[in-house]
Write a protein that binds this DNA or RNA. Sequence first.
DNA 1: GACAAATATTGTGCATGCAATTTTGAAATC
DNA 2: GATTTCAAAATTGCATGCACAATATTTGTC
Lengths: 223, 223
Amino acid sequence: MVDERQTRTEKLAGEIADAIIDGSLEPGTRLDEHMLAARYGTSRTPVREALRKLATTGLIELRPRRGAIVAEITSEQLETLFVAMGELEATCARLSALSMTPIERRRLGALHDSMADMVVRDDVEAYAAANIGFHTLFYAGSHNPVLADMAATLRRRLAPFRRAQFRAPGRLALSHSEHGAVMRAVLAGDAASAHAAMLHHVSLVEDAFEQLAAPPAARRQAL
Amino acid sequence: MVDERQTRTEKLAGEIADAIIDGSLEPGTRLDEHMLAARYGTSRTPVREALRKLATTGLIELRPRRGAIVAEITSEQLETLFVAMGELEATCARLSALSMTPIERRRLGALHDSMADMVVRDDVEAYAAANIGFHTLFYAGSHNPVLADMAATLRRRLAPFRRAQFRAPGRLALSHSEHGAVMRAVLAGDAASAHAAMLHHVSLVEDAFEQLAAPPAARRQAL
DNA sequence: GACAAATATTGTGCATGCAATTTTGAAATC
DNA sequence: GATTTCAAAATTGCATGCACAATATTTGTC
């Protein structure tokens, strides 16, 4: 059997979070403690502790004595989350411009180059995966784990709403060109430009989301 | 009896957090579940749930199967937290410049004016209290509850390390003048300047902290 | 006397059970 | 037929107990 070093609570928190992010648990779903305990083959205690943890990330809503539900997000709150993520990413880019090491800068350039090929091949899958890596480089490059954590948590939380971000025609090339602007500013050590470029880049993603809006019905049917 | 609407878990989380922030529970202290349960007159279950919650804010460290301790912070981590808070505050100021309502702008001006009197009277207590209000105005003014929450949480977490921030001579006047710069940029709707001015302002606070550094011994004795 | 191994003890992780609150459903009234 | 009232069911909050892992202590050996 796999070396089971993490506690049931942690494993549960991860699995429930995944189920929410990949859409198996829709927003508004009641998270009955008995039901979850039965589904994952444990008692209610670790389920309760996992729910508390998820509640702090905002993924679920915990109402005292009234149980937990998968967080329902209004389009207004979604907008707020996207803005917050954009600002955090921009801040990470700003700090990256100031404090990335030469090795980190080289990695950034290499990744950006390899992504150019994916654009040419129109390989959406590969690009989407590499895109996460690209942004993660700035989290790390900020050399500030606190901000990096916040940004990563938000990105994860918004994942369900970004699935189709590269579907629209021309998105890949546009994204790559935006990446280039951010990268050049960071490599030049220009903090203000890096901030502005990243903010502009993530705003585009937000726009892409809005074009796909009215998602509740669409997402439900997608199950 | 007081209307006890919140659960024991929530109340416990609050009380333990307060104890950590006001210094009753020193960094490194082991948080024995039985001990806490006895001290607060409950069973271990709500204590455990409260500890999980505090762990996500970073106030305590939860090591699987090895119990919880009040987070020990290295000066490096503290630096990271101060930088993160500075960036978040600067971001809130930036957004405030873009989206504060006329009413919020008027309140900002009024508070800043009233703080001038406190500087003249050298009323450190009043100024410290008003200072929190001043910064809180930007959290609200960002019109982004997600960012506002993050900033407020960080400010709270750093509170123990900022107690003496206005002690040094001339600090009050300096702080007030910095506030003025931030305020003017925000009122002028100059996002970039607001960002820069706030970043500069909170960096000063960080410097003030560093002058008081080597805090472990000093803080212990202060109990 | 120092170090290693074995044992005892403490403390966490989790299961289970009970009390109290919330929710649901049905009956009764308007 | 709609609405209110009340009781039953379901569900959460919390307490308690047990098993196992981690730590402390003791014992034995070099």
